[in-house]
Simulated scan of single mutants.
Amino acid sequence: MSGPRMTMQTQALLRMALSEPSREWYGLQMCEATGLPSGTIYPIIARLERAGWLESRWERPEEHAAEGRPRRRYYRLTGQGAERARLALASAYRSRSTARLPFGAGPTPGDLT
């Protein structure tokens, strides 16, 4: 199964989530932590949730009512999502590193066998 697209924005969100893998984040916190706008964050969250990398829950009504604010939806990495995120970020890092090598400095076909 292939995972979600590893755009730079997706990578930023995954790095943020992996900084505290068991923490629950709500959307505005994710925006603030990554510096990305909500119009970028929420589509990424939706893709990661569909892929099974994130799970979500709505806070209980008494939590937000007591504070007089709208209800929050909290997201966190699943166990499998955290592992896949680590692998995807490592792969993306390797791809960027290889792309910066001078022409001919990468592995030769014999290195790959």
Rank of each mutant, 00 (worst) to 15 (best):
M1I: 15
M1C: 13
S2Y: 14
G3D: 10
G3I: 15
G3L: 12
P4A: 05
T7R: 11
M8G: 14
Q11C: 09
L13P: 08
R15C: 07
A17N: 08
W25I: 01
W25E: 00
Y26S: 04
L28C: 05
M30S: 11
C31P: 05
E32S: 12
A33H: 11
T34H: 13
G35L: 07
G35C: 11
G35D: 12
G39F: 13
G39P: 11
I41W: 04
P43I: 04
R47N: 08
L48Q: 02
E49L: 14
S56Q: 01
S56E: 04
R57L: 10
W58L: 04
E59C: 03
P61G: 05
P61C: 01
H64C: 10
E67I: 03
G68D: 00
R69I: 06
R71D: 10
R73P: 00
Y75R: 05
R76I: 07
T78K: 08
E83Y: 07
A85F: 00
L87E: 15
L89G: 10
A92F: 06
A92Y: 01
R94W: 06
R94C: 09
R94N: 11
S95I: 03
S97R: 13
S97N: 14
T98C: 08
A99Y: 00
L101Q: 14
P102L: 11
G104M: 13
G106W: 13
P109Q: 09
D111G: 01
T113H: 03
